[in-house]
């Protein structure tokens, strides 16, 4: 474990806590993409199936996996619960969430079948989750770009997620030089994902520094 990896994991953790805390504190789901959150549930469930094999890497690793599975499920439940509590806000969220996720799911499945470390059930699902994670934020970014307005909740959330993705790159560079280890699929999909976020970061930078309106291309 290196510093980049730990800080990356911690910012990933922070992004989830920011999301949960804000939903609970403000009682608002405004600006959140239900689809992106549902994709994360699929991602963590398909990637962390190895928990069932009891081949534990470390306590840290297993606890983090359980946290990501549990928290992603909890967020979807929180969003789903707002259907009864705030029917109008819920309806607005679903109406604004128009990104076609079936392309992301289908594309990730094709990538997983083509690129995997082994043509086995666990490995194909692992690869699927890696590709799906690289694009899972798109419905959220699409929603943000359509509304044209910046919601501080979603901005902080996406920002923390983007830091997590960015920190994984120096982590891989570190691992390559220090451990001589390269996870090719994780690196390639991670770069794709970081490029998606860098687009957001660029817009965010322009907005914060120059005070212009948030608009994603």
């Amino acid at each position: 474990m290196n510093l980049f990896r730990i800080l990356g994991d911690l910012s990933h953790l922070a992004s989830i806590l920011i999301l949960i805390r804000t939903i609970k504190a403000t009682d608002s789901i405004d600006g959140i993409s239900f689809k992106t959150q549902a994709l994360y549930v699929i991602i963590f469930f398909t990637r962390y199936l190895d928990l069932l094999t009891f081949q534990h890497i470390s306590i840290y690793n297993s606890l983090m996996k359980l946290f990501f599975i549990g928290s992603s499920l909890y967020i979807v439940i929180l969003l789903q619960r707002s259907k009864a509590i705030q029917p109008i806000a819920y309806r607005e969220m679903i109406m604004a969430d128009t990104f076609k996720v079936q392309y992301l799911l289908g594309g990730s499945l094709i990538m997983a079948l083509l690129f995997n470390y082994k043509f086995s059930f666990f490995e194909i699902l692992w690869s699927f989750s890696i590709w799906l994670e690289s694009v899972a934020i798109l419905p959220q970014l699409f929603m943000l770009s359509k509304s044209g307005k910046s919601k501080s909740l979603t901005i902080h959330y996406i920002f923390a997620l983007g830091i997590y993705r960015t920190l994984y790159i120096p982590n891989w560079i570190w691992r390559y030089f220090v451990e001589g280890k390269v996870d090719k699929l994780a690196v390639i999909s991670g770069i794709v994902q970081t490029l998606i976020y860098s687009d957001f970061f660029y817009i965010y930078y322009k907005k914060v520094i120059k005070g212009s309106n948030l608009q994603l291309p």
Partner: peptide
């Protein structure tokens, strides 16, 4: 089993 690859990153 040995058929599973260990992915040590999250």
């Amino acid at each position: 089993s040995s058929s599973t690859i260990m992915h040590d990153e999250l």
